[in-house]
Structure formats: structure tokens, C-alpha cells
Amino acid sequence: MSLSFSDDMLKEVQRIVESYPQGKQKSALIPVLHIAQQEFGGWLSTETMDYVATLLGLKPIEVYEVATFYSMFNLKPVGKYMFEICQTGPCMLNGSDEIVAYIYEKLGIKPGETTTDGMFTLKTVECLGACGYAPMMQQGKHYREHLTKEKIDTIVDECWGMLYKIIKNKIFPLGDRGYMGRKLLLEKLTLKASGSMSVPP
């Protein structure tokens, strides 16, 4: 099996398993799937799920059953940043439809689609429990609330900024402060930031 968690992650899995009585490690399935999704590209491939099954000593089908049941597990590849817009009652009252329309206008993606550069995925979800702060969406671990068109603009820019940082850190692993970092900075200054992804200035 080619996939495997890092040692830190394995420790985390161990910690989770230990929070249940002995022999009840199946309970750890949902938390471990969360970790796996985060570690292996934001979605659960069959390979990932099989790995989780071996890790917890479960039948693969038990993992598939659970992974397909819960809406937070993505079974298909998603973009780097996922906008999960709530569209249930209270958010609808406060204009979630316009936000979805604006994202289509701005990024050209409809619910369920990903931008061609693999950067953004738009998903409409049901109530996220932030009705008083509507319209809202989930982006990564956090909620983005009281959405307006301007706020969407800011969030999109922020995502680009974050990606830019990640790419920069990959090229200059020690950052600007280290000697190697400065050296690399000088050496690679002329390099394009990335092969496949376009980075705005």
C-alpha cells in the first residue's frame, strides 16, 4: 500500500482510538476519515478508505458505507479551496441565492463545479448552524459569515494569497530568514512560481 500517515498522524490516530473502550476502535472511523481527507488531498479515494480500513481493522465496506453517508466527506477530487455555501431557509431569506450567483459571475462555477485551474470548488450545503450570521459559508475549518459581494472578493483574494505563500514556502523552505533561504531566493528569483497554477502578481 502506497499511502500511509506520517508518524505524527499515526500518534494522533492512536490518541483517538484510545478515547474509546478496548475493541471499540470502529468509533474512531469518522475522526480518522477527517484526518485522512485532510492529509490526502481533500478527498477520499478508494485507496485512502482502504488504508483507513486496514489501520482500524475494519472491512473496507464499513468504511465506504460511512464515508458515503456523511456529507463532509468528498468522494471526488475537489479544488484547493472549497466554498460551501449554506442555502437553507434562514440563509435563503438573507440572500444566499445572490451569493451563489455572484460566485458564478466571478469564478464561473456552479454548485458542484471546480474552476479549471483546480483552485476553487463551489458546493451548496444545507444548514450549517450559523443562521443568525446569514448568509454564510464554510471555507476550510472556519465559517465566513455575513457574506456580501465585497466579502467574496476579499476571500477569493485571500485564498490566492495563501496559495502564493504555500508555493513560496515550497521554493524557499527555510523562509527568507535562513542563509539557505536567502541563497535560494537569490538563485531562484527568476523562476516562475509554479508550473501548473497561475499566481497573480
Binding site: 478508494t46 472491512k59 473496507p60 465496506i61 465506504y64 458515503t68
Partner: peptide, 20 residues
């Protein structure tokens, strides 16, 4: 001794399948 199929998905999309 080895179940390889189960109920996948939920709501009216629930289905009997082996997934793979």
C-alpha cells in the same frame, strides 16, 4: 464471513452496492 456489499449514500440515493 466477509461482507463486501452494503448500503451506501443516504436519503433517496441510498443504494446496495459494493462501491468498487
Amino acid at each position: 464471513d466477509n461482507r463486501v456489499h452494503g448500503v451506501l449514500e443516504r436519503r433517496d440515493h441510498a443504494e446496495i452496492s459494493t462501491y468498487i
